[in-house]
Design a protein around this nucleic acid. Sequence first.
RNA 1: GCCUCUAUAGCUCAGCAUGGUAGAGCGAAGGUUUCGUAAACCUUAGGUCGUGGGUUCAAGUCCCACUAGAGGCUCCA
Length: 625
Amino acid sequence: MRILLLHSDFIEYQPISKEIQTAEDLPSKSKKKIDEVIVAFIAVEKDDDESIIADVCKELKTYSEIIKCDNLLIYPYAHLSSDLATHIKAQTLLVLIEKQTGDLFKNVNRAPFGWTKSFNIKVKGHPLAENAKTVRKKNGNNTESTSESMALKSEDVLKSIWYVLEPGGNLIPINDYKFEKESLFKKLVDNELYKKRTVVEIPPHVRLMKRLAIADYEPSSDGGNMRYYPKGRLMKSLIETYVTRMIHDYGGIEVETPVMYDSNHPSIQSYFNRFPARQYNIQSDNKQLFLRFAACFGQFLMAKDFQISYKQLPLKLYELTRYSFRREKSGELVGLRRLRAFSMPDCHAFCKDIDQAKEEFVKRFELSLNVIEGLGISSSDDIDMVFRFTTDFYEKNKEFIRTFATRIKKPILVEMWKERFFYFIVKWEFNFVDNLGKAAALSTDQIDVENGERYKIEFVDSDGTKKYPIILHNSPSGAIERVIYALLEKTARDSNMGKIQALPLWLSHTQIRIIPVASKHLEFSEKILVELDKNNIRTDIDDREFSVAKKIREAESEWIHFIIVIGDKEVDDGKEFVVRERLAKSQYSTSLANLIKRIKSEISDKPYLPLNLPVYLSKRPIIMV
RNA sequence: GCCUCUAUAGCUCAGCAUGGUAGAGCGAAGGUUUCGUAAACCUUAGGUCGUGGGUUCAAGUCCCACUAGAGGCUCCA
């Protein structure tokens, strides 16, 4: 018996006409639509008999449990086999399946036998949405399931076993672990395993990204394609510059690759087969193109054309994609957390063997930790780690895995698979849990044992043979937009705890605002501005005809860290200024030199880019979002 | 993609249950004020009430579809 299983959003079918004389009679030929359903196309073959029905039902049930759908449609489909059973036997067996699955499923339907039918189907886009099985009679009463393989594999492989890895290195089954109540780690676990939500409200970062004129939705584009206002653009540039520099220091070689590729390229095609079709497609002349969803293809296709010796490994290629495109389902898009177009640093390391890959894996873990901390996201307070690997990898690398637990000093959520289903054998992520209890992955790294061969990337090893490298996929920061999301959500959390909301100084568009008391103080204000400018401190002047109090208020609501008011006193004195420092909630008198020193020490090694708006506030358009 | 909710001036929102020609605050423009650490004062202009259809003598208000957003589901290379 041949079975094709399709996990579908819906199927819509309509009997058209009888195809055979023995076709069953129907009360009506009306169209029928079933939502959220497993459609089982079944062809009954010559050797099939009642003895295999139990096994067929078991297969169906197993599949339904894996994908968590208990709505079944049995759909007679002769075209799956060229060795068909008689009509009568086929129909009998199908009815039997219908009866026996009745107890196993919540709903079971059967499309009429012997009819020409038209149908419309929408198959879901996940790896297991499509599945084929063959169930055959074995000697005697036993049956064998050739798709054994597929069904069992899928089940075993995708059945995750969850643990918590403690900093000491103990691996504790998730149900035995005692969580700290209300901890972010607990929320992460709820998110990953139980899909629980703690709060229901609009994510704070969405309001903030608009109010701070960082980013906004662009209704004239596609969902998840944002517009970034001047301040947002500057913030992105700064983060991008920072991450790129860190990767350079690590040894990454920056390249640039196309945003679109030929869908019919063989390597890409086979990669596709592994993943749901979630890409943007473009038809251009006779070519079917798609927009990249990561920098993988570009770098792999490039590396394939390199001549590489083992002496040059690990080879690290890096690109910051602007953009990577993923056509996520519309209902999944949220503010800056989940986008359809995003900028992602993607650094691949081509390694000669698993030992070198592991060594590199550790280095990149340290790199990611440094980057995340440098961005102002605390690895101890804001981040929880998820580690995913196969049982096999764990058994061989217990000590290795333990070192990560020791290093991160926090419990780690572990997902283990019995067999490898994806292209990687081990993967970790840093997850940020936001104010709604939703988790979003930032940094990640994977050890990929499949794509070296798939893309025919070769290196010559010390013994002169050609080999395929093991590839690491690392994004030390995660998507740039998601970093901004995390920073904004973090400020909202601060605010809930009574702290003052602020972005890191080095990411603030305006670092110092000068407020002249009256227009006669403008000239002196400009002199100070020039001095600060020389020292790479982004400074602007609020020259608008408002009261000082009002200008202070606006500067505070823009979260500007330092404010200097320039009036007669300052012009006369020329040395000391009263600085209003937002985070310190204080005003103090200091010299310009001291202020510059103070700011430089806080910014330390972070990149500088000039102001991205006119210096004078009177010259700026109002971006009221 | 599915279910539920939302869409009124540049921004935040009222008006809608009971259909009868559109309101406030902030912002903007013009003017007065040259001002010392979180909102000076006066005047004026701003709206095909998301888009398209329908019901009605009459629709911002009721109904349908679409678009965009939010929450949930699902998913997340």
